[in-house]
Design a protein around this nucleic acid. Structure first.
Length: 546
RNA sequence: GCGCCUGUAGCUCAGUCGGAUAGAGCAACUGCCUUCUAAGCAGUGGGUCAGGGGUUCGAAUCCCUUCAGGCGCGCCA
């Protein structure tokens, strides 16, 4: 609909003999302003140095395909308001019902390959709420983009090498000894969460006191591997419960084992972005706008944390993707310039990697902050929150906010509101439609072939509004895709549900009038199609009854 | 000190690329179940868009500045 209007207006603007500017088309605030509007005449006023209303008149006069519209009005300072003809609107609605993919999927992606990396939590503890937000947003974005015709791969980067997993192993080793009655000190900066003891108990269960006499040198590797693998298993389990799956799990270890860390640094060296100073090896990230150069190999010969990240991003960039997306917690924002520098130093355009930040989640309980420290083991896990308030409610809370807004997640409020949560409002609309359809079936009404219904019978103002809202899904969808903002879908669904609930409440769908019933059922069918599409994108369940 | 994010109704948040009279939900208050599900519907009240300046036909939106909150600024990971 928008695309069509865009084309029509551009055609009409050609008459001015100037380069055609970007034509803005928007949904007017009020129904009386028509279906779509453009302020184009006002923007042109500056260039053409003519009064906006005069320009608007010229544009309207030049519009060729007048039969698409019921009326075209010039309003206010120079808006052109378009109201589409009923016939055109019905034909669009018919497309929606008949071939949802043709209607819903503006093929923006055109089969382009895109990789989205998200969550990527260290396997040194269970997922917490912040990971949950990244997971909800990442999954929804993936669904959104694949719905728009991209080929999306979801990747989880596993930090299974380096100091943190070793420290995890050591922490478990210490706890293991202590549980066996051996006096063994826990590492000062080690992990202290409840799960450390759980892992230690698992070792005892599976291996008894086999490692009781062992030194950390002998047993360290075993404990590290055992522990992080168990943690990773738990992370996968938590994600599964949250309804999120990944296509690939890229291991950091593997990058080391395949020599990619070394190779990537050599690669940069050949490109003259690596140098030695003060006994360390540096990456010249300042060449691409970073504040300072970054150490990749320390004086003691060890790689920094940054080194495998270079290898990892080189690994991604070498794969056949048209675009890469990293979703990070906002606390890592300082890391962006150096990673972008890596991409550019390797000869890829900056735009090939897009880093999206998801802002922090602070957890409250009854208005008071809950201390979150992974090391000290004081934190509420994602699983606990899901168990307490439900997966759909939790996801909905994450997806009704812009990713860059700071989120205060109050457990008490979430729990109290879980019954009042808007997610149920939207799901309920779907459940009611199912119920209406089963009622219709009981009445012996043929509920097949909705697209053949006579939409002309849908003459109530509420029905017109709903139809137009349904058609507006195209714009909401397209906007969400282009901006990479799944939360727009969430708000759209709430608005649609907000129109549908009053409708069925006030007007019976199944009546004695067979033709009208059929038309209204078709409208319900269209609403259901759009709701389900939104649910799929957001990763929400669509219960048939509630 | 420097950088990133945020500040909109009592609370939680939307607000498209600068457009028309700033919107939802929750909370509060009034009504509505003999009907296809009351997780619903109808209605009421609630605003210095943090403050100040600027840009222009037009600013919650863009620029400058002040204030407030969060996060980040290691040869840590």
């Amino acid at each position: 609909m928008k695309k069509k209007l865009h084309y029509i207006i551009e055609g009409a603007v050609k008459q001015f003999g100037i380069p055609i500017p970007e034509i803005v088309i928007e949904l007017p605030k009020e129904d009386s302003f028509g279906d779509l509007a453009t302020p184009a005449a006002m923007s042109l006023a500056r260039i053409l140095k003519k009064p906006p209303r005069k320009i608007a008149e010229d544009i309207v006069r030049a519009i060729a395909e007048k039969d698409v519209f019921e009326k075209i009005e010039i309003a206010g300072p120079g808006f052109i308001n378009f109201t589409f003809s009923k016939l055109y609107i019905y034909s669009e609605l018919r497309v929606l019902i008949k071939d949802r993919s043709e209607f819903l999927r503006a093929d923006i992606g055109k089969g382009k390959r895109i990789q989205i990396e998200f969550v990527s939590a260290n396997p040194t503890g269970p997922l917490h709420l912040g990971h949950g937000r990244g997971a909800a947003v990442g999954a929804a974005l993936s669904n959104l983009l694949s719905a728009a015709g991209y080929k999306v791969e979801k990747e989880f980067y596993v930090n299974d090498a380096g100091r943190q997993v070793k420290l995890l192993g050591l922490s478990v080793f210490a706890r293991y000894n202590q549980l066996l009655g051996i006096d063994y000190p826990s590492p000062d900066d080690g992990y202290k969460g409840f799960y450390i003891e759980d892992i230690a108990n698992r070792v005892i269960r599976d291996y008894g006191n086999k490692y009781a006499e062992a030194s950390i040198k002998e047993a360290g590797e075993f404990f590290t591997d055992f522990s992080y693998r168990l943690m990773l298993k738990g992370i996968k389990q938590d994600l599964k419960e949250f309804g999120i799956t990944f296509d690939t799990w890229q291991s950091e270890r593997e990058l080391y084992e395949r020599g990619e860390v070394e190779h990537s640094i050599n690669d940069l060296k050949e490109r003259d972005y690596i140098y030695e100073e003060d006994g360390a090896v540096w990456f010249r990230s300042t060449a691409f706008g970073d504040d300072k150069d970054r150490v990749v190999i320390k004086k003691d010969g060890e790689y920094t944390y940054f080194a495998p990240d270079i290898a990892y991003h080189r690994n991604k960039a070498e794969k056949e993707f048209d675009e890469l997306i990293d979703i990070w917690g906002a606390d890592h924002h300082g890391y962006i310039p150096r990673i972008q520098a890596v991409i550019q130093a390797l000869g890829y355009p900056k735009e090939s990697l897009r880093i999206l930040l998801v802002q922090m989640v602070s957890l409250l309980r009854g208005g008071r902050p809950v201390q979150m420290s992974k090391r000290a083991g004081e934190f509420v896990t994602l699983k606990e929150v899901i168990d307490e308030v439900g997966a759909d409610t939790t996801r909905f809370i994450f997806l009704t906010r812009r990713p860059d807004s700071h989120l205060e997640f109050d457990l008490e409020v979430a729990k109290a509101q879980s019954a009042e949560n808007p997610v149920f409002y939207v799901q309920y609309a779907n459940a009611r439609i199912n119920s209406i359809f089963s009622h219709a079936k009981e009445q012996g009404i043929n509920i097949e072939k909705s697209e053949d219904a006579d939409f002309g019978l849908l003459s109530l103002p509420e029905e017109t509004r709903i139809i137009k809202k349904l058609l507006a899904y195209q714009m909401a969808f397209e906007g969400a895709v282009i901006a990479h903002e799944p939360h727009r879908i969430t708000f759209y669904l709430q608005e649609l549900a907000g129109m549908f609930h009053p409708y069925y409440h006030r007007h019976k769908v199944v009546t004695d009038d067979a033709n009208l019933t059929k038309s209204r059922l078709a409208l319900c069918e269209a609403v259901r199609i759009v709701l389900k599409d939104g649910f799929e994108i957001l990763g929400l369940n669509a219960p048939e009854r509630m």
